[in-house]
Amino acid sequence: MDEADFMRGRVYGAEHGDPGPRTGRAYAQLVGGPLDGLLLDVTGTFGTGVPESVALPTEIGRYGPGGRAVYAPRPTDARRFDWQGDIR
Rank of each mutant, 00 (worst) to 15 (best):
A72P: 11
L38N: 06
E52T: 12
R80Y: 11
A55M: 07
L30R: 02
P21F: 07
F6M: 15
P65S: 05
R22K: 15
R10N: 14
G66Q: 12
Q84C: 08
Q29S: 13
A26D: 11
V70L: 08
P75Q: 09
R62I: 13
G64I: 05
R79H: 05
A78Q: 15
H16M: 12
D5K: 09
R80W: 08
E15T: 01
R10K: 07
G9P: 13
T23K: 10
G20K: 14
D18N: 10
P19A: 15
G37L: 09
R74W: 02
L30K: 06
A28P: 11
V42T: 07
F46Q: 09
P51Q: 10
R68W: 15
R74C: 05
A72H: 10
V54W: 11
P75I: 06
Y71T: 12
E59D: 01
R79I: 06
P51E: 14
R80H: 15
P34G: 02
V54L: 06
R62H: 11
D82L: 03
A69W: 00
G32L: 12
F46W: 08
F46P: 11
G37I: 01
D41G: 07
L38D: 04
D86Y: 02
L35N: 00
I60R: 02
P21A: 13
V70S: 10
R80K: 04
R22A: 07
A72M: 13
A28M: 03
G24M: 12
M7T: 11
V70A: 06
A69F: 00
T76I: 15
G66M: 14
L56Y: 05
A14S: 08
G66R: 02
Y27E: 01
R25G: 02
G20P: 08
G66T: 07
T76K: 10
G66L: 07
Y63S: 07
T43A: 04
L38G: 13
A78F: 11
T23R: 08
T45N: 15
G49R: 06
P51I: 09
R80E: 15
F6W: 06
W83S: 10
W83L: 03
F81N: 03
S53I: 13
A14G: 01
G37A: 08
G32F: 10
M7C: 08
E15F: 10
T58I: 02
